[in-house]
Structure formats: structure tokens, C-alpha cells
Write a protein that binds this DNA or RNA. Structure first.
Length: 197
DNA sequence: CATATGATTCCA
DNA sequence: GGAATCATATGA
């Protein structure tokens, strides 16, 4: 069963480059129908990771146990642990084996998440949504974990990605996107290097 | 098998 | 500024 006002996006929503999906996900809703009730956040910050050729993307190491879901079919969740403590939720996209994914970095509480609970920052977002590595590989086109497309428009800000200094020139690519009007973005837009549509 | 290092957050 | 904390990747 799904929340009537938050219909799941169909598979073809995910069949595009991570850069495009990262923009599309701004303003979209991430829904988790957990055991203790539904949780919904409005996505306000994302980053695109674009396959083996992207030095900041985990797919650069090829197929391993960790990257199995990243290199698997689109429309599925890629959840991994960073720094030994924080889980990061990603949406696999484009096509199977492409290694494209969008990291969801922040959201605004909408349903089932206390209004004062913070969901800014990838680790906090995953925790607020009750998403763990157990959700790695989960199909994102149906309950209990899915994306519901945005309605309306978003003022998009663009910047370099966070925490990827090791990636050389790729660290500077403008592949982080955020809602300029949201106070729930994980970092101030001071580092903005351009504005989107 | 040993070791270095993160797509981070929290505390001092 | 530094610790917490551990799966993963890499090299011996």
C-alpha cells in the first residue's frame, strides 16, 4: 500500500543520467513506509555520481560486493556506510552497469518525521528516514521505500560536491544541486558557482 | 592478513 | 581541531 497523495515514480523516471535525475529529485518526496508508520521528506539537496569515469564515484573501483547495487539495475537503492558511522542513501539510475547514482543529501520533514528533526546531511537524512544498509538494493518504484515526483517548481542552486577532495579535477565539477529557498540544505550556498533553472 | 581511508557528525 | 568507528579496497 502507498500513501495516496504520494504516488511512486515509475521505472522510467530513473532511466537518465545522474546529473538530470539529481535536478529532478529536488522537490520530490522520499517515502518510507516503515513498521512504525510512514515517513516522508521533501528532497532539497542532491549530488550526481556518474559512473566509472567519475573519480569521485564508487563505481571507479569496478564490480565488488559494495558496488554491486551501484552497478545493478536502475531504480534501486544504493546504501553504504561512510566514516564507520553514517549511512548514505543513493538512487541508482541511467541503466544497469552504468554506475550512475544520485546521493540524497538533505530533506525537509513532511510526514512521520518530527518537524524539528534534522534531515540535513546524508547521515542525518538516512537516520531520520530509518534507512539502513538493510535497504541496500531495494526496489524504489514501490512500497515500502520509493520516490514520489515533485509537483511545481524549484529554484535550483549548483555547486561542487562535498567531501570528494581526493577526486582531483572531478572534485570541482558542479554536480551538487540544492533548493535555493530551503533552509534545510546541509551547507550554506556560499560555495555556489552557478544557478540552475 | 595488515593497514589506510573515507560521498560525516559531534564535541571541545 | 580531533575523535568516533568500521566496511572496503589494496597490498604484503
Amino acid at each position: 500500500m502507498t500513501l495516496a497523495s504520494y504516488p511512486p515514480a515509475p521505472l522510467d523516471y530513473f532511466l537518465r543520467d545522474a546529473r538530470q535525475l539529481a535536478r529532478a529529485l529536488l522537490g520530490a518526496f522520499l517515502v518510507h513506509e516503515a513498521g512504525d508508520g510512514p515517513r516522508v521528506v521533501r528532497v532539497v539537496e542532491t549530488e550526481a555520481y556518474r559512473g566509472p569515469g567519475d573519480a569521485a564515484c564508487h563505481a571507479r573501483v569496478g564490480l565488488t560486493r559494495r558496488t554491486r547495487t551501484l552497478l545493478g539495475p536502475p531504480g534501486h537503492a544504493y546504501v553504504f556506510l561512510v566514516y564507520g558511522m553514517h549511512e548514505c542513501f543513493n538512487v541508482v539510475c541511467l541503466g544497469e552497469g552504468e554506475g550512475h547514482a544520485v546521493l540524497v543529501r538533505a530533506g525537509e520533514p513532511v510526514v512521520g518525521v518530527p518537524p524539528d528533526a534534522r534531515a540535513d546531511g546524508p547521515g542525518r537524512l538516512a537516520r531520520a528516514m530509518g534507512i539502513t544498509r538493510a535497504d541496500d538494493g531495494r526496489d524504489l518504484t514501490a512500497s515500502p521505500l520509493y520516490i514520489s515526483p515533485r509537483r511545481g517548481t524549484v529554484r535550483v542552486g549548483v555547486s561542487a560536491r562535498v567531501g570528494v577532495a581526493y577526486a582531483g579535477a572531478f572534485a570541482e565539477r558542479p554536480w551538487r544541486f540544492y533548493d535555493r529557498l530551503s533552509p534545510h540544505v546541509s551547507r550554506p550556498p556560499a560555495s555556489a558557482i552557478g544557478l540552475g533553472r
